[in-house]
Amino acid sequence: MSIFGFRISPSSAINLDKVDRTRFEELCRIEPDAMRCMACGSCSATCPAATFSGMSVRKVLLNLQRGKEEEAFRLMSNCMLCGKCTMVCPRGINTRHIILSICRIYEKEAGR
């Protein structure tokens, strides 16, 4: 690959018109609390995997809502299911359970 010259990077912009919400809505049906996140960041701050991998329940939920599923899966692959994030969430969201539900729903849909 050439290291010189111009390269157009793919747009990182989020286009909400194109987001397919089917799976996120399915997630919300079994995990209604998935919508209640207020982005405080307590989960990421306490997550033992965060420092090394950037894992963050907040970011996973946000990425799923914005249609950035691959990014969410990449983050989630670092989760150890230790449940610390659930202990600290001020909204009382069962984040660990949500992570498991995400795995179930999205794997099923993706045929993985």
């Binding site: 990182s12 909400l16 946000l62 990425n63 914005r66």
Partner: peptide
């Protein structure tokens, strides 16, 4: 800007 995602955002 979706400042939580750090990305520009657009919607119709």
């Amino acid at each position: 800007e979706d400042t939580l995602a750090g990305k520009p955002i657009k919607v119709t």
